[in-house]
Amino acid sequence: MKPFDFIQPATIDAAILALAEYSPNVRILNGGTDCLVELKHVAQSPGVVIDVSRLQGLKGIEIVDAGLRIGAGVTHTEIMADPLIKEHVPAMIDAAHTVGAVQTRNLGTLGGNLVTCVPSMDSGPTLLALDADVTILGAKGTRQSSLTDFFVAPRKTSLEPDELLLEIIIPKENLGKPASFIKFGLRKGQALALVNAASALWVEGNKFKDVRIALGAVAPVVIRASKAEALLEGQSVSEGLIQEAAKIAVGEAKPIDDFRASKEYRNDLIEVGTRRTLQAALGASNIQS
């Protein structure tokens, strides 16, 4: 790694002051599972590295007025073991489990996964399907953003150089919403997603309500399949309609063709992933009722 200055602020406020002082020549370091890999390969020193991995203010999973708050510094392993996550958003456990291997999950954080903003991130689809919001802190104060607006482009979020991702909020009305996540890779362990997908829906009076379908690794950022959602919205629950929605979802994605998988194969995976997550969310809804 190229030499850099290393700061370990004791509080979030101190981290924000350091960010303001040194940006844009500054990197935030938390779990390091992406950041350090990158810093080992860059030609120029990042300048200053601010280690936020010890900040208690970025930790914690708790119910707040707005919903379920997950600190940006919570690790994937912590998500997998958390009783509130299990009770309110169990699909997040399936998503967290597919991130890297146990060594990665013990260090890597939910916030880091979102900020890195690679299209194949495994935390994105479930959170997008649950209409998650993020809280961002900068020198000018805090601001809220939808996760949809937070994702801008591959490896680019709406974070300004002097801002820090504080927390992820699952809105109160979506706690307990039946949801499901699936990931397809080239192998089971430690694989990048070829396609990943999540669906969430309510069933009211045997009709689909508030259907959300999110797809990862199929576009520059994680996307919603809004036409497929619209096909189901308000309609009577039927297997045929789910299959039709899955076909429509394929048309909303633009997967790449590369050495890991062809575009055609990824398109097939989008259809299968959409269908299976819708079926699983529906199944979870049946169990609830």
């Binding site: 290393f6 390091g32 350090l36 590295v49 280690d51 060594q103 990665t104 260090l107």
Partner: peptide
């Protein structure tokens, strides 16, 4: 953890 992906200072 992978000791290659953690700074000594962390």
């Amino acid at each position: 953890v992978n000791a290659c992906l953690m700074l000594a200072g962390q």
